[in-house]
Structures are given as C-alpha cells and as structure tokens.
Amino acid sequence: MNTEQVGQAAPVSGDPWVRRAGRAVLRPFRPVDEMARAIELGAGLQRSTSTGRRIAVDDLGTGADAAVVTALMARALAHFRHDRVLAVDAIGREPSLADRLGAAGPGDLGRADAAVFETVCEGLGEVTERLWTARTDPADTRAYTLALLPVSRFFGVTLVAGEHGGGFLETVARGAHARVRVVRATRDAVLRVGRELDVMAAQGREQEAGRTVVVVLDQERGEDRGLDVARTARIIAESGAEVVALPHDRHLAQGTAVLPRRIAESTHRLVQAVAVAALDRAIDGGPSTGSGR
C-alpha cells in the first residue's frame, strides 16, 4: 500500500516523539538483561526446521486484526531467518495481508506453479527476497492440498491468516504445526478463548492446546478497562497455551502498510516473542524446554 497516495493519512509512529528521542539517547546504555533478551529472541527466530512448518492464524471470531499480527510475525521471521517465509491471506477483507506487508502485489496461491521456486515466484507477491505473500479463497478447502502443500515446501515457515470457521483455514489448521489465536482485549473475547481450550481438554486434545499461542490484542486503546490482562494470561496459560498481550500501537491502528521503523519498540519485542513461541511449538509439538526461553 502506498501511504503517500492522496486521501491517506501519513503514517504515525507507535511510540510518541518524546519516547523515541529518549530511547535513541539511552540506546548505548541499555541494560545487559535487555540486550540478552533481544539476542535470545533473535536466536529463537533462527531455529532450523527439517521440513517446512505451517502456522495457522485466526481471530477466533472476535474481530481482532489477525492480518496485522500475521504481517508482523512474517516480517520478524523473514528478518532473522536464512530461509524463506510465506504469508497466505485467506481472510478476504480489507486491509489485506498484502496491504499490511506493503507487497508489490497480492499474489494468487492458485497461480503459483510449484515445479521449481522460479515458477512459484511468478504467482506470489514479493515483499523482500525472503518474504512472499499470496491470497486464496477463504472457503476453498481444496486449495490446501492442490496449492498450499506443494508451494509451502519451498519455504521454511508458512503463515496462514484465515477466517475463523472458514473452510480453507480450518483445513489448514488440522494439519498445522502450531496455531495462533488473535483475540481482542475484552472479557468476552478471552472468555471465548477459555471455552475453546476447555473443549480441547474435554475432548482429550491437550496437545492441541500446547501448540496454541494466544495473542490478546489491544486493538482499540482501552477497549475494555475491566479486563485484567495479567490474571487472564495466567488462567489461559494453565491449559498449556502461551499467552502474549500486545498493547495498543498507534501505527498498527492506522490500518495501512506496517512500516517496521514506525512500530513501537515494545511491539517489536512482543511480536518477536509471539513468533518464537509459535515456532517453538511448530518445531517441538508443544512448549519448548530446550530453547532457553
């Protein structure tokens, strides 16, 4: 998305000017533990995979912006990894994943010829040399076996952002190595997460809960001031799922292309934590005990 087009507001920064200035001044004096955490996250994002890992992302029907979280995760993974990352848009509403990524084009998963990587590229939208995107019909269940599986073998990590209950997303989720549920920071939304995890436990699907990362997104600042995020995170974590609270970010709330330099510093760090948690689960089949996290 060209943010300089007429009628579009100039991109704002997630952090106010005073905080950005102060951070620049203090950067050489950052605490050792903060630097160590940044190195740890970077190492976690670089974990090698013997085969491509698929991660499904959806909003659990809460109206949260799953596309922007997918875009952030994709950028974080592509920045640190040495293989390629594919981000697939099966949401079907605006702003699209391609818009969020600022891709040259949206790509079309069905047009990607999986003979060799050069022919795959012709059907995809390029973001960077290591980050590609494509869209697909949210209801097309056949696209999973006919398009996604052949194409995803060329990528170290494939992220699929889809509609909760959509045919394509649910088909992908059944074979996904990890799942990210992005929910709004409201009591109704987290109750929905709790019910979903309770169903998993009742049906003997505890391993599925262990492969789940829940992102509590403060999409509209202070949307539910009665929500105790810390307590909610502790309760959800008892199921085995990882929980990351993502505070409101003015830049993300604009709904335009995600510009890394405009995102709040805390957003950078927390999104990396989400990506590492999802990757750990995709590789290990549950919470990692060997990555030092």
Score class of each variant (00 low, 15 high):
Ala264Met: 05
Ala277Glu: 10
Leu270Glu: 07
Thr49Arg: 08
Arg20His: 08
Leu217Phe: 09
Phe80His: 15
Arg211Ile: 02
Thr136Val: 06
Phe168His: 14
Thr62Asn: 10
Leu146Lys: 15
Ala87Lys: 03
Gly107Leu: 03
Pro16Trp: 07
Gly210Tyr: 00
Ala36Ile: 13
Leu109Trp: 04
Ala278Pro: 10
Ala253Val: 08
Asp65Trp: 12
Arg84His: 09
Pro287Phe: 01
Arg281Ile: 05
Ala189Glu: 02
Gly42Ser: 04
Ala76Glu: 10
Thr133Lys: 04
Ala134Ile: 01
Asp224Trp: 01
Val215Trp: 11
Glu126Ala: 15
Val151Tyr: 07
Arg130Cys: 01
Ser152Trp: 13
Leu45Met: 15
Arg181Trp: 13
Ser288Lys: 10
Arg81Ser: 06
Val213His: 04
Arg84Tyr: 03
Arg234Gly: 01
Ala43His: 08
Thr289Phe: 04
Ala103Pro: 03
Ala253Gln: 09
Leu246Val: 07
Gly61Gln: 11
Glu126Lys: 15
Leu26Arg: 11
Thr267Cys: 10
Arg81His: 11
Val12His: 07
Asp59Ile: 11
Arg211Ala: 00
Ala64Cys: 08
Leu169Tyr: 04
Gly61Val: 08
Leu45Glu: 14
Val120Asp: 03
Asp198Met: 13
Asp140Lys: 08
Ala230Val: 14
Gly175Thr: 04
Ala209Trp: 00
His177Pro: 14
Asp33Phe: 10
Ala64Leu: 11
Met35Ala: 15
Gly156Leu: 00
Met1Gln: 08
Val229Gly: 04
Ala112Asp: 00
Glu170Lys: 05
Val85Lys: 00
Val88Asp: 00
Val271Thr: 06
Pro150Ile: 11
Tyr144Lys: 13
Ser152Thr: 11
Asp58Pro: 00
Ser266Asp: 08
Gly175Lys: 01
Ala245Ile: 02
Ala147Lys: 06
Ala98Phe: 02
Asp58Ser: 05
Gly123Thr: 02
Phe168Asp: 14
Gly286Cys: 02
Val214Asp: 09
Ala275Ile: 06
Ile235Trp: 11
Ala10Asp: 15
Arg261Val: 14
Val180Tyr: 00
Glu170Ala: 11
His82Pro: 07
Leu259Gly: 01
Gly285His: 07
Val199Glu: 06
Ala277Ser: 08
His82Gln: 14
Ala9Gln: 12
Ala74Asn: 03
Arg153Thr: 02
Thr158Leu: 08
Val213Gly: 02
Thr145Ser: 14
Leu169Asp: 04
Ser96Gly: 05
Ala278Asn: 03
Arg93Ser: 14
Glu265Met: 13
Ala264Glu: 06
Val183Trp: 01
Gln46Asn: 05
Arg20Gly: 04
Ala38His: 08
Gly162Leu: 06
Arg130Asn: 06
Arg93Tyr: 08
Gln203Asp: 15
Asp218Gln: 04
Gln8Thr: 13
Gly7Ile: 05
Gln8Trp: 10
Arg153Cys: 07
Pro247Asn: 04
Glu122Leu: 13
Ala264Val: 11
Leu227Lys: 01
Leu41Ser: 07
Thr51Asn: 09
Arg225Tyr: 12
